[in-house]
Design a protein around this nucleic acid. Structure first.
Lengths: 349, 349
DNA sequence: AGCGTCCTTGTTATCGTTTTCATGTGCGTC
DNA sequence: GACGCACATGAAAACGATAACAAGGACGCT
């Protein structure tokens, strides 16, 4: 910058003004400065800039998801990124990998970089440290799961109702023995879905057989094994509700695998996934709209950064039951997941 | 920091030393400082820190992919993030969305933040601006597609050979009329795959019928339409090679859709995708390992940041043909895509 | 002519940290 | 007892930019 000033024969302030498009610089002077900038390939140092302009936003936000490689969070991240771009903001990204320690570390690193705000998918456990950061002026929006010990805007999905609808759909089809295959139930979303399953059963005066309820499936393979085990029960279920996409796919593996009775149980899964409609039989799912979640969360965050100090809000998005069922021809229009990117999903809210 | 110093009754330097774990501070003094830090909730400002420590790396890298919502890039991003964490680095992320302008903007924004390095999936077009940033000291690694007008470490996949193998597999199965359904052929990977298709045909003395070659399919729906159109040809292909996952899935839609001859053509697609093994018939694919690409790219980048000044290298990873074919029982172990996260894929190289 | 005003430009202080060098203190040694 | 040395600590400058204020000139008005 000093070099630019020297070459253009002006002072630092004038260069600053030109770089920031501030008014009150003679066009001729500006041109000289521009020329010097070109010549030297000068680029403003935003670190120094943000340091000096304390109080002004730093145009950086942090996004902390569970696992970026998971398509659900990838879509959410993309939506956040697009919103950030509109606000001239860059995005720092991190995966917590279901570890509270790692989450705390990442949050701390981001805050040391003086982000304006954070969008966090919280893992289980206390988030006092988030509240601390809030006190220091960092705006926080929580997504996907409620945060423990922290008052912040939150965007959730009505997991319970979605699961309830799904299971009721099975019941309406005449199923009486409905198995549950679930991920770790210390994850809030999973717990809610299980509650929805129980609720729908209770509503129909069905008492779930404890032998048909399996928790803690952390991988597709584990789910496949569990599905096989469940179908080997002397009195196997006629239908299965799977708590998320991984478990659903594992269940498909199990029901389809060698030595299994092919398709001997109806299947409804939480989470839409690619090609669910092309399986035979195609799979009924409870679809969420991760893209909408990201867009809404980003919107709330930028409102806060812009100075909104109203009490924290909680937004609960509905799910969508996509009924496919055995042998049924898939609907002509694709699943919600494929159109979510354009933000249409917002109308669901 | 000033407050911490005052409360602890020491100078700024001493606080700095404690915060950075520098030696030469009396344990008792350090404890007093630590206490003051706790009390005030002080956190180092890394902006100011990076500003002062010019020359030292800023512990920030930028990752620019085509589309973060695409599972391929999401996995790549996750691998990069994991590697970055090991090096104590945070990751700025952006999607170029196939736009050179947007790519240039994002790169510029990242560099204004003084990132140590960039991992870029380049869109088509000249990347002179990347070379400019290199000249300013930013390390660059190119991934997935070669960069135009820029000398940098590059991680590619042998798209041509992969496609060649895939098409030869079809030929070995006895197919003579093999259609090509492809994405925009101004994308390098797509062009390479098409070249592989042509090469395999030529090798077998097959002359592809121009009516069976369709380019420019940008969406699943477009691919579905194209597949239907191709199958409606008076002399339809007995097999189809699809240039990427989106086109493959669209082709499945088309072959399966109402009014189509179900499964009337064999199908091999580039890119592995979830559940490809569970379709009926299951789909043979050419699998890449995005996670390995990310890991290797990050490794190269951090080597450069650490001071490696050897000439730019180019690494070409092989693909893996996963033969599934009609009616065949899927192998017990999952597709490469599901195990890639742990870096095992690296052994493929 | 004198004065106020607008407009362009420059001077200086500052952001929060680290670096460099200087200072003071205690201790062992000849 | 003086010297050198190691050690803990502090003072001041610097990183690259912006904010606040000041200065000089042109202009119009009385």
């Amino acid at each position: 910058m000093r070099d630019v000033a020297r070459i253009a024969g002006v002072s630092l302030v004038t260069v600053s003004r030109v770089v920031n498009g501030a008014p009150g610089v003679l066009p001729e002077t500006a041109a000289r400065v521009e020329h010097a900038i070109q010549q030297l390939g000068y680029q403003r140092n935003d670190m120094a800039r943000n340091l000096r302009r304390k109080g002004q936003p730093s145009q950086t936000i942090g996004l902390l998801v569970d696992d970026l490689a998971n398509p659900f969070f990838a879509m959410l991240a993309r939506a956040v990124e697009d919103a950030a771009r509109v606000h001239g903001c860059v995005v720092l990204i991190g995966s917590s990998n279901d570890s509270l320690t790692r989450e705390r570390e990442v949050v701390s690193t981001f805050c040391a970089r003086r982000v304006d705000g954070l969008i966090v998918v919280p893992v289980a456990g206390s988030h006092r440290f988030l509240a601390d950061q809030q006190a220091m002026g960092v705006k926080v929006v929580i997504v996907d799961r409620p945060g423990d010990s922290v008052a912040a805007d939150t965007v959730l999905v009505d997991n319970r109702r979605g699961a309830h609808e799904a299971v009721r759909h099975l019941i309406d089809q005449g199923h009486q023995r409905i198995g549950y295959l679930g991920d770790r139930d210390d994850i809030w979303t999973i717990r809610e879905r299980f509650a929805g399953y129980l609720g729908a059963c209770a509503e129909a005066a069905l008492l779930p057989d404890p032998a048909l309820v399996i928790h803690g499936l952390r991988s597709r393979a584990a789910a496949a094994d569990a599905a096989v085990a469940m179908m080997s029960h002397p009195d196997p279920p006629t239908a299965i509700f799977a708590s998320n996409d991984l478990v659903t796919m594992g269940t498909i593996d199990g029901l389809r695998g060698p030595g299994s009775r092919h398709g001997s149980a109806a299947l409804v899964g939480f989470d839409e996934f690619v090609l669910a409609d092309k399986l035979n039989p195609s799979v009924t799912v409870v679809a969420q709209d991760p893209s909408a979640m990201g867009t809404i969360a980003a919107q709330m965050l930028f409102d806060r950064i812009a100075g909104d100090t109203s009490p924290p809000r909680q937004i609960v998005l509905p799910t969508r039951l996509i009924i496919r069922g055995s042998g049924e021809i898939a609907p002509a229009d694709g699943p919600v997941i494929s159109t979510a990117r354009n933000g249409k999903g917002l109308t669901d809210a």
